[in-house]
Nucleic acid binder design. Structure first.
Length: 271
DNA sequence: AGAGGTACCTGGCAGC
DNA sequence: TGCTGCCAGGTACCTC
């Protein structure tokens, strides 16, 4: 489900209801997420004021004085803001309840998401410290990708989806960016020229910015914090379009497996 | 070090 | 209808 645009949209959606506000309590109905939810540590945030809400890669960071709460949406997670209480539904595993009554509700059918906590002064959480640069940041450049990829035999697609190389490029937007840059997804990362990495960096930025503007891509049941879907889907060029005509040249879009993930590309436009 | 596969989990859908 | 198998937006961790 959520790729970076969805996480960014979620972050912006909860920010006004959380930032500068006090946490009242947590209601944890199912602590069995990817890692066990640290129930006691989260409950200890009761009465704390949220100083900042932002994200690093696809991890949402909720910062208070004693520490930071980290939320990952996994494949199927979402956060909704409730200003009027609502009976919890299936897979509504965690509620963060604010003192003014707003509820940040975490729903995650597949439970690949997580709620974690990192105390202040303990340094950066180890899940964050090894992450690559932000794709929309100034460290993400053609020179960086070119240098980082030399000698690498893995496909360019799995390379750009590796969060240690660059964060936030998931399966949908990897396919779209490679199409936009005209690069075949199976091409070895170490054999892509500096010039083509320039095209790829621009394409990744462009597709992510456009998707953020549209509120993300909804394939099945993804909803933003207001419960509405994202609208980027109409603009996909290759993802999920196998057999359909390429929007640029009408050649049928192909689908292959790469690193256990479906990949879509135009055999004419991408070399 | 790098590459590839495995694991976590539920739900939706196609095919029978 | 109901069963079975396959697929799904992520990523840490394991082995080779």
């Amino acid at each position: 489900m959520p790729e970076l645009p969805e996480v960014e949209t979620t972050c912006r959606g909860i920010e006004p209801f959380v930032s500068g506000k006090k946490i009242a309590s947590f209601e944890i109905r199912n602590p069995g997420l990817r890692w066990p939810v640290p129930v006691a540590a989260l409950q200890a945030f009761a009465g704390e004021t949220v100083r900042k809400v932002d994200r690093r890669g696809k991890y949402i960071r909720i910062t208070c004085d004693p520490g930071m709460i980290l939320v990952h949406l996994g494949m199927s997670g979402s956060l909704r803001v409730l200003t009027v209480p609502e009976a919890p539904k299936k897979h509504d595993h965690v509620d963060m309840i604010m003192e003014d009554g707003a509820i940040i509700r975490f729903n995650d059918p597949r439970r690949f998401g997580c709620w974690l906590y990192q105390p202040s002064g303990a340094g950066e959480h180890e899940l964050l410290s090894a992450l690559g640069p932000e794709p929309l940041g100034e460290d993400f450049t053609a020179d960086y990708l070119f240098a980082r990829s030399r000698g690498r035999t893995q496909s360019i697609k799995t390379f750009i989806m590796d969060s240690h190389v660059v964060v936030g490029v998931g399966n949908i937007y990897a396919a779209e960016a490679l199409f936009m840059a005209g690069i075949h997804p199976k091409r070895a990362a170490g054999k892509v020229s500096r010039e083509r990495y320039g095209l790829l960096v621009a394409a990744i930025r462009k597709v992510l910015v456009a998707a953020i503007r549209q509120g993300g891509t909804t394939l099945r049941d993804y909803v933003n914090t207001d419960g509405k879907p994202g609208y980027f889907r109409q603009q996909l060029f290759v993802y999920g379009r196998q057999g359909e005509a390429c929007r640029a040249c009408s050649t049928p879009v192909k689908s292959i497996q790469l690193g256990q993930r479906s990949t879509f590309y135009c055999p004419a436009c991408q070399k």
